[in-house]
C-alpha cells in the first residue's frame, strides 16, 4: 500500500535501461511503443523535471516560502534577486512555486493512490467473493456516484471542515468508484475462467489468485486512468482552495497561490498567472503521458 505512487509511472523508464535487449517481454514492448510517442515522452519529461525541481527546492533557492517581507511586495518578473517577482506579501514567487509544487503534485499523486487502493480493494473483494459484500460495496459505490464529482468533495468537506488534508481525503473518495468498477468488472469476467479454476484446484490461495492472476489484467486501464486522474485531482484540489475549502493561506500550494493572486489580477497578474501556468503544465504533461500510455498499452485504440 505504501508504494510511492509515482513509481508506477517512472518504473518503465528505469526498467528500460536494464532490459533493452529482451524483445519478448511485454513490458519491454509497451515501453518501446511509449518511447516512440514523442509527445508522451515530452509529457513525461516535463513531469519528471517538475518533480525533481520541487524536490530540490531547498538547494535551488535560499528564500523561505512563507516568510513575509513587506518591503519587497508585488515585485514584477525579472526583479533583481527575485527572477519571478514576489507576491502580495513579498514572498519570492519562484520559491513558492517550487515548494508549492511539492504539495500540489503530492496531493495529486497521494489522492490518486488512496482512491486506487480503496477502489482496487473494494473491486477485488466485491468481484471475487460476490454475495452480500458485493451488494453492499456496490450500493456504496452507487451512492458515491449519485453525487456529481466536485459536489461530493464539497459535501465531504462540509462535514469534515475545510483544510488541505480534508480536501485531499474528499477528492480521493470521489475517485474510488471508478477503480472499484474497473477491477470488479475484470474480476467478474475472469473468475469463472478455466485457468483460474485450475489455479484454485492446484491449491493457490485466494490472495495469490487475486493479485497474481486477476489484478494484472486490470492494470492497463487503471494505470491510464490514474495518470489522467492525477491531473484532475490537482485541478480539483486547487478548485477547493479557490473556494476557501482546501489548503489555507499562507501555505505554498498552487491552488492557494492562484486564489491569493486573483485579488491582484490587475495590479500584479504574475501572482496568479504563474501558479495557473504551473498547474496547467503539470496537468498537460500528465494528459500527454496518459494518452501515450493508453496508446502504448492498447495499440488497437491508436488512430
Amino acid at each position: 500500500m505504501q508504494t510511492e505512487p509515482n513509481v508506477k509511472i517512472d518504473q518503465p523508464e528505469a526498467a528500460a535501461e536494464d532490459f533493452e535487449v529482451i524483445q519478448a517481454d511485454p513490458k519491454q514492448e509497451i515501453w518501446r511503443r511509449l518511447k516512440k510517442d514523442k509527445i508522451a515522452v515530452a509529457g513525461g519529461c516535463i513531469l519528471v523535471v517538475v518533480i525533481l525541481l520541487s524536490l530540490a527546492a531547498p538547494y535551488l533557492t535560499s528564500y523561505n516560502p512563507n516568510v513575509v517581507n513587506m518591503a519587497d511586495r508585488l515585485l514584477p518578473l525579472g526583479s533583481p534577486g527575485h527572477i519571478l517577482g514576489t507576491d502580495h506579501l513579498g514572498r519570492d514567487m519562484l520559491t513558492r512555486l517550487l515548494y508549492g509544487g511539492r504539495i500540489s503534485v503530492a496531493i495529486g499523486f497521494t489522492a490518486v493512490a488512496i482512491a486506487m487502493f480503496f477502489g482496487i480493494l473494494i473491486g477485488l473483494l466485491a468481484g471475487y467473493y460476490k454475495g452480500f459484500f458485493d451488494i453492499l460495496a456496490m450500493r456504496f459505490i452507487d451512492i458515491l456516484m449519485a453525487f456529481p464529482y466536485v459536489l461530493l468533495a464539497i459535501a465531504i468537506i462540509a462535514a469534515l471542515g475545510p483544510g488541505l488534508l480534508n480536501a485531499m481525503i474528499a477528492i480521493s473518495i470521489v475517485g474510488i468508484p471508478y477503480y472499484a468498477r474497473i477491477v470488479r468488472g475484470t474480476v467478474l469476467s475472469l473468475r469463472e475462467q478455466e485457468y483460474i479454476e485450475a489455479q484454485k484446484a492446484l491449491g493457490a490461495s485466494d490472495l495469490r489468485i487475486l493479485f497474481k492472476h486477476i489484478l494484472p489484467n486490470a492494470l492497463s486501464p487503471i494505470i491510464v486512468a490514474a495518470t489522467l486522474d492525477v491531473g484532475w485531482m490537482i485541478i480539483a484540489a486547487s478548485g477547493m482552495s479557490f473556494l476557501g475549502l482546501g489548503a489555507q493561506p499562507p501555505m505554498a500550494e498552487w491552488g492557494v497561490m492562484l486564489s491569493d493572486g486573483k485579488d491582484f489580477l490587475r495590479v500584479a497578474p504574475h501572482i496568479s498567472l504563474l501558479p495557473g501556468m504551473a498547474i496547467f503544465m503539470v496537468v498537460l504533461s500528465l494528459n500527454l503521458l496518459g494518452d501515450g500510455l493508453r496508446d502504448a498499452l492498447d495499440p488497437r485504440l491508436k488512430q
Binding site: 512563507n66 516568510v67 513575509v68 513587506m70 506579501l89 489555507q248 493561506p249 499562507p250
Partner: peptide, 10 residues
C-alpha cells in the same frame, strides 16, 4: 488574521 499573526509572531 493569519498574516497579521505571522507578523506578530516574528
Amino acid at each position: 488574521p493569519v498574516t497579521m499573526a505571522t507578523a506578530i509572531q516574528s
